[in-house]
Amino acid sequence: MITFDFHKVRIPFRFSYGHAKKRHSELEAIIVIATDSDGVQGYGEAVPRTYVTGETCESILHIAPTLARQALAGGEDQAAVQHCLGEIANQPSDTVPSCALCAIDTALLCLEANRQGTSVAKMLGGELPCELVYSASIGLGNKAAMLATLLSYRAAGIQHFKVKVGGESDFRRIKWIRRILGADITLFADANAKWGREEAVRNIEQLAKLGVWALEEPLRTADPPETIHGFLNRRLVLDDEHWKTYQWLRDRSAIPLIADESLICPQTARNIIDYKAFDILNVRLSKCGGTHLSGEMIQIARTAGLGFSCCAMVGETAILATVGSHFATAFADHKLVQGHSHRVLHRTRFVRGEPAMKRGGKLRVEQVSGLGLQLDTDGLEKVTVSHERITT
Rank of each mutant, 00 (worst) to 15 (best):
Q206S: 10
T3E: 15
L257D: 11
Y134A: 12
I185N: 10
A321M: 07
Q159H: 10
K22G: 00
I104W: 06
A200I: 04
L336E: 14
H326C: 09
R115K: 12
G305Y: 06
Q91I: 01
L371M: 10
D36Q: 13
R252V: 02
K362C: 12
R179P: 01
V52G: 12
N90P: 02
A68K: 01
T291Y: 01
Y43I: 15
C102P: 04
G139Y: 01
E45A: 05
D260Y: 02
E381K: 15
G307Q: 09
L128A: 13
A73E: 08
I158S: 06
A200C: 13
S98P: 02
T384G: 09
N90G: 08
G372P: 05
L140N: 05
A71L: 07
M1Q: 04
A144H: 08
A29S: 13
A103P: 05
F327L: 13
C265H: 11
P97D: 04
K8N: 11
G139A: 02
F4G: 06
I255T: 10
R172I: 02
H24R: 09
E354S: 10
D378N: 14
W248P: 09
Y51M: 01
F278Q: 01
V165R: 06
Y51V: 01
I272F: 04
G196F: 04
T384D: 01
F331I: 08
P65D: 09
G166M: 14
T384A: 05
A269M: 00
V365Y: 08
L232G: 03
W176Y: 10
E58P: 01
C102R: 03
H342L: 07
G361P: 09
H19M: 11
L219H: 12
G75L: 00
R252Q: 13
R252W: 01
G196T: 12
T317G: 04
A89S: 15
A68W: 00
V96F: 11
K362S: 10
K162G: 06
A254R: 15
G289F: 05
A301K: 09
T392S: 14
T245R: 13
V237T: 15
N282H: 07
G360S: 03
A183L: 03
P225Y: 03
P48M: 01
A145R: 06
C310A: 15
P224G: 06
L85I: 09
I319Q: 07
A89G: 11
